[in-house]
Simulated scan of single mutants.
Amino acid sequence: MKKSLKVWSALIFFLFLFPIILEQIPSETLEEVEVVVPLNNRQLVYATNIFEPEPQIQQGMRALLFATHSHEAFEPITQQYDGKIAVSHPEANIMKLNETIKSQLEFNGIATEILDVDTSSIMNQKGIPYNKSYDVVRPYVQKSLEEIDYDIVIDIHRDSLKADRTTLTYEGEKYAKIVFVIGGEHNNFKLNQELAERLTAELEQIVPGITRPLVFKAGHGVDGKYNQDLDPRLILIEMGGIGNNEAELNRTSAVLARAVSKVLQKDEE
């Protein structure tokens, strides 16, 4: 009888202490834990410092990126790179931005390739003048288009304007503004223009004010085509200007990739 009483007493004592013990055990929910993952694991940020897991690339959505003016650079980035303020640089240039855009497009489910050609280096080596840049890059773009049917082809540039005209502050964050350039001297330019206008609408839905008015170029003194005659899905984007920094360009890259994904998904539907 005494042994039975001791057992019951011990059980009652344990049940009394159990809630107190539970309170001492640390508990964390998924929402309470902030996990920061290095960029080299290809987990990407959308305009913040919170990283999200990379989704699977969706079948049938493919993009090609290239830079006709491959050495175009941003002054804050070149200064950070080697202490020199420059608008053209053989290493810290627009081609690095293409790598960021590629990562963001893939984060949004679009298989993306970068055209592996440094146009400016080729021109410097052969003594080709700057105004022939679109002619130099053209055969490389043409070859890629013959091999793969891309959903979108983007030629990335930066504007020569200063930061006060190419920067937007929205909800406390700064973004590099985007402008689309359309060459009007070919028969199908309206198709390129239509795609640029659809992207503009999506970009404005995500971050109002992030785009500048579309630039239409034709006539004496301009290229007039910008290789857009090669494909109705080829667009030329000027992202920011010489004074935009890496953080601003990264935020805009994320917004651009999201807008591209939305447009392409609507095309599939």
Rank of each mutant, 00 (worst) to 15 (best):
T119E: 12
V141F: 05
F107R: 09
Y140I: 02
D135W: 04
E113M: 06
E113H: 04
V141Q: 03
V136F: 15
V141S: 00
L115G: 06
Q142G: 00
G109N: 10
I110P: 10
Q142S: 12
P129A: 09
I122W: 11
S133I: 02
V141Y: 03
M123C: 07
E113T: 05
F107Q: 13
D135R: 11
K132R: 14
N124K: 12
D118M: 04
I114G: 11
A111S: 11
G109P: 07
M123R: 06
K132L: 15
Y130P: 01
L105K: 05
K126H: 11
Y130Q: 14
R138Q: 10
I114F: 05
R138P: 05
I122E: 14
M123Y: 08
K143I: 02
R138Y: 04
S120Q: 09
L105Q: 09
Y130F: 13
K132P: 04
P129F: 00
Y140N: 04
Y140S: 03
K126L: 09
I110R: 07
S133L: 10
V141G: 00
Y130E: 13
V117P: 12
R138G: 01
S120L: 06
L105V: 02
N131V: 08
Y130D: 15
S121C: 10
D118N: 14
Y134H: 12
F107W: 10
G127D: 03
V137R: 04
G109H: 02
S120V: 01
Q142L: 02
D116Y: 08
P129R: 06
V136P: 12
S121V: 04
V117T: 11
M123F: 11
S120G: 13
K126I: 00
Y140T: 03
L115S: 06
F107N: 13
N131Q: 12
Q142H: 03
Y134V: 00
V117C: 11
L105T: 06
G127C: 01
K132W: 09
Y130I: 09
K132I: 01
D118G: 13
Q142P: 00
D118K: 10
A111C: 05
G109Y: 11
A111P: 00
N124Q: 14
M123H: 07
V141T: 01
V137M: 11
D135M: 10
Q125E: 12
A111Y: 08
K132G: 06
Y130S: 14
I110M: 04
Y130M: 13
P139L: 01
S121F: 14
V136A: 10
I122N: 14
I128C: 08
I128E: 01
T112E: 06
N131K: 15
K126N: 09
F107K: 12
D116T: 09
P139H: 07
V136L: 14
V137T: 12
K143A: 15
P139S: 08
T119A: 15
